[in-house]
Amino acid sequence: MSDWHDVATLDDLWEGDVAEVAVGPDTILLAHLPGRQVRAYQGICPHSEYSLAGGDLDGDVLTCTGHLWEFDLRTGEGVNPSNCRLYEYPVRLSGEQIAVSVPTDGRPHYNRCRG
């Protein structure tokens, strides 16, 4: 089971922006990629728990400021290192509104990887 939550609008999140939102205990990274593509992933770096929203987004690739881990935000896959992916939340766009679906299973929603 999961619930949809309105988390932001397209006016808050311009193309090229990343932002952090909280839904209950979940910290979520929102990203607006070129071509009106919005994605939602775990907000905390799977490596050592830096906030990903403070990272630098260049095209589709986000570089975490903690230890420069890179993620392809089109897919959530790690670019460097490549053996790590971000937990992804489903996203729905209706008009200007961005909604994210968060499972109501009471469990934490993030992947962890070791450097």
Partner: peptide
Amino acid sequence: LRTWSIADAGRRRLNE
């Protein structure tokens, strides 16, 4: 301000 007032790309973040 979120971007240059005179180079606003319409809710798209300008790249470097």
